[in-house]
């Protein structure tokens, strides 16, 4: 069972107010709105993952945030089953739901339908990086740092999870808010993994 102090937040990524941050470093500031912003972000961050264009906005947002979060992550030091993902948001997959509903008035689109669940963003990140650990997606009114800490800490105690991507990925009315944390047991670097630190990092911008 890991002690609290042995678990660290080793990386953070934030996409908010048309800006992309890696920790304290501003990586990109876009002037476009909606998909234009996400596509300029794709070019500027050199994401180089053609499947990105097929995704709904929630998955694009989560995939872009994960791209920033995992830039320096040495995933080879973990087995695929040791990397978990726990995400949350307020609006579920509402944009994809509405888009699919609109398409269903004429020809229901299979490629829109597959994004009508919020946890698909976890699948997209898992596919890109080959992660196979435990995962969960929670919907709540606002980011609940205490619940996130409790759940991720529990995964690390009761399951073979040694690293976990966790945080918040929300999209509504073409507004993107993604704040991801990489939590690792093996690393001595980073900030102590506590609910208080999650809360501070989430609210910094």
């Amino acid at each position: 069972m890991p002690e609290e102090s042995s678990v660290h937040i080793t990386s953070t990524a934030l996409i908010r107010n048309n800006k992309v941050w890696e920790g304290e470093t501003l990586l990109f500031e876009g002037d476009g709105q909606g998909m234009d912003f996400l596509h300029s972000l794709y070019e500027n961050l050199d994401i180089n993952y053609p499947k990105f264009f097929k995704m709904d906005a929630l998955c694009k947002s989560g995939t872009a945030a994960a791209h920033v979060l995992l830039k320096n992550f040495e995933k080879e030091q973990y087995k695929p089953e040791e990397v978990g993902i726990v995400l949350s948001n307020k609006n579920g997959s509402i944009e994809a739901d509405i888009n699919y509903y609109e398409s269903s008035k004429t020809f229901p689109s299979p490629s829109l339908f597959v994004y009508t669940l919020p946890n698909i963003v976890i699948g997209e990140i898992s596919i890109r990086y080959g992660f196979k650990g435990e995962n969960a997606f929670f919907v709540s009114e606002k980011f609940n740092a205490h619940w996130m800490y409790f759940y991720v800490n529990n995964l690390m105690q009761a399951h073979p999870i040694k690293a976990c991507i966790c945080g918040w990925v929300d999209v509504v009315d073409e507004e993107y808010d993604a704040c991801l944390f990489l939590v690792e047991q093996k690393s001595e670097n980073g900030i102590n993994f506590t609910a208080g630190n999650l809360d501070i990092l989430y609210n910094r911008a």
């Binding site: 020809f107 229901p108 689109s109 299979p110 490629s111 597959v114």
Partner: peptide, 11 residues
């Protein structure tokens, strides 16, 4: 999924 989209395209 793309295969399904191609079926939709034909229709």
């Amino acid at each position: 999924i793309d295969a399904l989209e191609l079926i939709v395209l034909l229709q």
